[in-house]
């Protein structure tokens, strides 16, 4: 198995840092508007962010990181 190149690794580490950084920036998503089907932003955004994390981790895995 060939390991991911240095550039690829740097890319995915940056993606992970952004994911964690956004999750920690609580004031960014601590709001009601815009709502989605009556659900406040605070809730549906965090739910969606889990999906983004899952997708990023899956793609990082496929790139042999």
């Amino acid at each position: 198995m060939t390991r991911a190149s240095r550039g690829q690794r740097a890319f995915w580490y940056a993606v992970f840092l952004i994911i964690v950084g956004v999750a920690l920036s609580v004031p960014l998503y601590n709001r009601v508007q815009p709502t989605l089907a009556g659900i406040p932003f605070f809730y549906w955004f965090q739910f969606g962010w889990i999906l983004v994390t899952a997708l990023a981790t899956a793609l990082a895995y496929r790139s042999k990181l």
């Binding site: 992970f16 994911i19 964690v20 889990i50 981790t57 895995y61 990181l65």
Partner: peptide
Amino acid sequence: LMVYPFVF
């Protein structure tokens, strides 16, 4: 959510 990239 933060656990996964960290453990990965």
